[in-house]
Structure formats: structure tokens, C-alpha cells
Amino acid sequence: MSTTEILFWFLSALAILSALMMVTSRNPVHSVLWLILVFFAISGHYILMNAQFLAIVNMIVYAGAIMVLFLFVIMLMNMNADTEPQKNKWMKMAGAVASGSLMLVLVAALRDTELRSKGLEGAEGSIGLISQLGKVLFTDYVVAFELSSVLFLSAMVGAVLIGKKN
């Protein structure tokens, strides 16, 4: 096995294990910490794909900012293992069936993506680097980029409005 393969299997195992721990742990704070570990593993996968910018932004935005907000809410509402509501077993079984069927659909949909994505890669594996990403965003996908920034702006204005009311 090459180093990349070992890293890939290690990161995948880490991601799946932490995701399972996140779902099963009783304490919400523990769940958040496991979720952070999942994000780290995913960032590792991005680096393996030579998408370093995406990896680091995933870490700053998701593992950093958003998870801190999650922690804020959980800590301030004083949620812990005792107050965590336990679903009954029918709900759990329904959840397992639903997520299992979702997995089947995803497997069926993603089965032949490797063949189709060949055309997208294009720029000899350096697509994930900042300069490449910037060029692509501001030329080929400029409309989508601008639209999503308008979306962000409106979300920001909305947040300020909600904050102002109190």
C-alpha cells in the first residue's frame, strides 16, 4: 500500500467512527466534539485530493466558527445527558430504515460518477489551489458565485434585523 492509500483508509475509518460516535453519544457536547473530528477527517480527504484551500476553509468555517456556535447554544441551554430526550424504539427503527434507503439511493446515484467526473477535473489536478479556484469562480461560474454572495448578504441583513428587534 502506498502512503496515500494508508492515509485514505485511516481518514475514512476515522470519519465513519467519529460520525457513529457523534450520533450515539448521549452528551450533546461530546456529539459536537465528535462532529469536529469528522470535519478534520474530511479536511484530510480534501488535502489528499490536492484541494488544500477547500480543506482549510472547511476547518475555519465548519470546525471553527459553526461548531463554536453549536457549542454556545448547547452550553447556554445547559443540555446534558440527563435532559436529552430519548426517542422510543419505533422511531429509531424508522430512522434506520429511512437512512438505509437513502444510502441505497446514494449508492445507485453515485455508482458511475467516476466515469462522468473525468471531464470536470480539467486543470491537471491543481483545480483545488487558490489561484485556479479564483479563476474558475470568476470566469466559468461567475453567475452562481454572485448569486450565492447575494444569498449570503440577505442572510446577513436578516440576522442583523432579528438582532435589532430585541
Binding site: I56, M59, I60, A63, G64, A65, V68, I130
Partner: peptide, 16 residues
């Protein structure tokens, strides 16, 4: 080639 962003990522993890 993302050295500056790495520093920011570590800072945002340091909050924890």
C-alpha cells in the same frame, strides 16, 4: 501555499 489560512484555522480551533 495556504500558510496564512492555516494560521487562521489553528486560531479558530484554539477557541475550543
Amino acid at each position: 501555499n495556504i500558510g496564512v489560512l492555516y494560521v487562521f484555522a489553528v486560531v479558530s480551533i484554539g477557541v475550543f
